[in-house]
């Protein structure tokens, strides 16, 4: 009974840990604009500062009930409302919140404005866990953004961020879009250029395949040795012999061949075959009639070769 209770407790703890692991840790701030005079407009045709959030996981993420704030001491400044289907961010996608201090305009209008030098936080539903934060540079110019160099990467380090003015090829301002635009599969391109004949991939891949199966092989070699030892001890115990009493070097053959030979010999000697070949049994088989199973109404038997 105690054992069962312990098992149940372990299962509950395991489930709790699993649900913790599936939290909203992949949600992050991805790009911020403070003064917006010429960039993207909201659904009312107006321009405001904006905060872009990014779901860096490969699963959809529901963000209702997380909190956005620019005041660490007031983590619940803007709770993302419940009941809006648009608060589910698809995998590796973005959503923009307008920093216009007008929450009555809709789900994506937060209750505060943002200024240079401020830190923006995302708090989880527990109001304690900071999911992400970013400090806006004090000298961020109008119509420029402070953006992650690579979407969702770099944690809370400010080094992972850069100022983007939208003028250069690599400094696009990208509301609701990836900060880095990838037009080729970089991995494939690298292999195409650096491993033209496939030799490197072959060596690496074969090494991995061999290692995986070698580890499995070694593991099962060890398990089989332990298994053999246990079965040997059990066999000796069944014969009433203590393992320590067995003379050194004496092996127990457990290939099954000896047993098979003994069984065959007994079979021959006793003619211990059961007698089903010589007995004819006729049993009446009763089946309730149903047109569904009637052969009359069936199509026909399946053809056999």
């Amino acid at each position: 009974m105690k054992k069962n209770i312990l098992l149940v407790i372990i299962a509950v703890v395991a489930c709790a840990m699993t649900s913790y692991a599936q939290g909203r840790k992949g949600l992050c701030i991805n790009e911020v604009m403070v003064q917006n005079d010429s960039s993207v407009i909201d659904d009312y045709g107006l321009r405001h500062g904006w905060i872009e959030l990014y779901n860096s996981t490969h699963a959809p993420m529901e963000i209702s009930s997380v909190y956005l704030t620019n005041d660490k001491n007031n983590p619940t400044l803007y709770p993302v409302p419940l009941g809006d289907v648009n608060t589910e961010i698809p995998p590796l996608q973005h959503v923009i919140f307008w920093a216009d201090s007008e929450p009555n305009k809709g789900t994506f209008h937060v209750s505060f404005n943002i200024k240079n030098g401020e830190t923006i936080y995302i708090f989880d539903a527990d109001q304690k866990t900071i999911l992400d934060q970013v400090t806006i540079p004090v000298d961020l110019a109008p119509n420029t953004t402070f953006a992650r160099k690579i979407d969702g990467k770099g944690g809370i380090s400010q080094d992972a961020w850069e100022v983007r003015d939208g003028k250069g090829d690599l400094t696009y301002i990208t509301p609701s879009s990836n900060n880095i635009i990838v037009d080729t599969n970089t991995k494939v391109e690298s292999f195409r250029i650096l491993d033209k004949n496939g030799f490197v991939l072959t060596i690496m891949a074969m090494a991995i395949v061999f290692s995986a199966l070698l580890i499995l092989s070694i593991c099962f070699y060890i398990i089989s040795k332990i298994g053999e030892k246990i079965s040997k001890v059990n066999k000796l115990k069944a014969q009433g012999i203590e393992p320590s009493e067995l003379p050194k070097g004496k092996k127990i053959n457990d290939s099954g061949e000896e047993i098979a030979a003994i069984v065959m010999a007994l079979h021959e000697h006793l003619n211990a075959h059961d007698q089903e070949n010589t007995i004819l049994t006729i049993n009446k088989v009763k089946r309730a009639y149903s047109p569904w199973s009637s052969k009359i109404y069936g199509l026909r038997e399946l053809p056999r070769r």
Binding site: N197, T202, M206, V209, F210, L214, L216, S217, F220, Y221
Partner: peptide, 19 residues
Amino acid sequence: PKLMLVGAAAQFGIFGAYM
């Protein structure tokens, strides 16, 4: 278990064909 290595070696067919 050492027969697993034979299974691994045959996978060279995949990577040989890749080249």
